[in-house]
Each structure stands twice: as structure tokens, then as C-alpha cells.
């Protein structure tokens, strides 16, 4: 019995369930959002659905590896490559729409990323993957094409990550009291987290790195969930309302000078 693989199965299953549930809950709460934010919301729903769709076959793949079925492992790896190739499309739409507010431009730019994804897929399927190599912790495949990995890195991941970092930087430069930290910055950090560790998960040839990446993907998903549906502790600590309240003076906080005047 390989406990490392069992742990891997549980992590993959947790990512699948949490990201799909998150996408579902976001879609159900669509009515609460303004018309201006709805296109970005649907892009987010698509993004988290694709994360779930990537990790669902990966979960089955890990179960197959655990049970010693390399054929199912390979089939599931090929299936999981499809949602993975297009994961940057809704993300690019989300970032572009939030930054410039133009739906058409966002569509055109995300279409370019769809082409990138399709190019990656065609290279991936034509070159194939080497594996599976089942270890104590995971089942590893290596993409048999350097060009595919280049497209991966440059097209699908570097640009969207740079966009997220740019947006975060813009938010930090123009700091505003009205910005609720958990609602704006936390989702972006979470998306960046998930996005980058999915990449690491797919290109690494080391099982420890792969399982660590998956743990971070899970952490990112939970982080995003907390950003949109914060617990009371988060609300109290990070909300803008709280910041304003703490600035108000208390009757007991009167200075000695004020006491003398009242006196």
C-alpha cells in the first residue's frame, strides 16, 4: 500500500471538489453582483470550472496509478491536458476586462490565448508524453516536446501571471480606504497561486515538487473561497468598514487637555 499516492489522490480530489463547488457557488450568487462586474464573474466561474475539470481526470489518474492501471493513467493524463491548455483563456479575459473595461478587446485577447492553447494541445498530442513513471508519491509524465513547454511557459503562463502582478501593483500604488482587502487583493493572489502551481504540477518530473504544488493549489482554492465568502474573523480584520471604525475616537480616549477643557 503506497500511502504517498493515497495522499495525492485525496489532495487532487479536494482540489476538484473545492474548485467546482466554488465555481458553482459563485455562479449561484451571480445576481448579487452589478452588471459591470458580471462578465468578470463569469470568467472567474469558467476559470474555477477548468481548474476542477483539470483535477478530476488527475484524481482518476492517481487512482489508476494506485491500482496499477497505466492505460487509464495515460488516457486520463491526455484528457486533463485539454482543460489545462485553456485555463489561461478565462483568466486573461478576467484581467483584461477588469483593467480596461472593454468586453470586445478582452474577447479578442483571450481568443489569442485560445490559439496558444490549441497550438500547445496539437504539439502535445503529436509529440506525446513519456510515462507514466509511478513513484511512492505520484505518477509522473514528461511532455516529449520542448516547443510545447515553451508555449506553455511563455504563452499560457508568463503573460497572465504578469497581468495579475501588474493589477496587484496598480492596486498597491493607488491605495484607497474604500478597497476591501479580502475582496480585491486576496482573489488575485489566490488565482496567481493556483495558476502558477498548476504549471509547476504539470511540468515537473519530481514527485515531491508535484505533490507540494498540489498542496499549494488546494491552499489557493481555499484562499479564493475565503476571499468571496469570508468568515467573520476575516471580515473583522480586513474590511474597510473596520478600518474606518478604528479611526473613530472613543469617549474614554479623551486626552488630559480635553478633560481640562470639559472640567
Amino acid at each position: 500500500m503506497i500511502t504517498g499516492l493515497l495522499l495525492n489522490i485525496i489532495i487532487c480530489f479536494a482540489i476538484t471538489i473545492s474548485s467546482l463547488t466554488f465555481a458553482f457557488v459563485l455562479a449561484c450568487n451571480g445576481g448579487e453582483h452589478s452588471e459591470k462586474s458580471k462578465p468578470a464573474l463569469w470568467a472567474l466561474v469558467a476559470f474555477w470550472t477548468l481548474v476542477g475539470a483539470t483535477y478530476l481526470p488527475t484524481t482518476i489518474r492517481m487512482i489508476a496509478a494506485y491500482m496499477g492501471k497505466p492505460t487509464i493513467d495515460t488516457i486520463m493524463y491526455n484528457i486533463s491536458a485539454i482543460p489545462f491548455a485553456f485555463i489561461s483563456v478565462p483568466l486573461v479575459f478576467f484581467i483584461m476586462y477588469v483593467m480596461i473595461g472593454n468586453k470586445n478587446i478582452s474577447k479578442y485577447v483571450s481568443f489569442i490565448f485560445t490559439i496558444f492553447g490549441a497550438a500547445y494541445l496539437s504539439l502535445f498530442y503529436s509529440s506525446g508524453a513519456i510515462g507514466p513513471q509511478v513513484t511512492e508519491l505520484s505518477s509522473i509524465f514528461i511532455v516529449n516536446s520542448d516547443i510545447a513547454i515553451q508555449i506553455y511557459l511563455m504563452g499560457l503562463f508568463v503573460f497572465p501571471t504578469a497581468m495579475i502582478l501588474g493589477l496587484l501593483l496598480l492596486m498597491f500604488i493607488t491605495r484607497s480606504m474604500t478597497i476591501s482587502i479580502h475582496r480585491t487583493v486576496l482573489p488575485l493572489v489566490a488565482i496567481s497561486f493556483v495558476f502558477d502551481f498548476i504549471l509547476t504540477d504539470f511540468i515537473t518530473a519530481v514527485d515531491v515538487i508535484q505533490i507540494t504544488s498540489r498542496v499549494f493549489v488546494l491552499v489557493g482554492t481555499v484562499q479564493a473561497f475565503l476571499a468571496y465568502f469570508p468568515q467573520t474573523v476575516f471580515n473583522d480584520r480586513f474590511s474597510a468598514k473596520n478600518n474606518v471604525e478604528t479611526c473613530e475616537t472613543d469617549e474614554n480616549d479623551k486626552t488630559e487637555y480635553e478633560d481640562n477643557i470639559d472640567g
Binding site: 459591470k36 468578470a40 464573474l41 477588469v98 483593467m99 496598480l170 484607497s176
Partner: peptide, 14 residues
């Protein structure tokens, strides 16, 4: 202009 642009960005965030 900067503040307005930031406000619009926040408005578009779901």
C-alpha cells in the same frame, strides 16, 4: 483620473 480609474477597476471586480 488615477482615483477614478482605480474606482472603476474595483467596480468591475466581482
Amino acid at each position: 483620473k488615477k482615483t477614478k480609474r482605480m474606482g472603476e477597476i474595483i467596480e468591475r471586480m466581482p
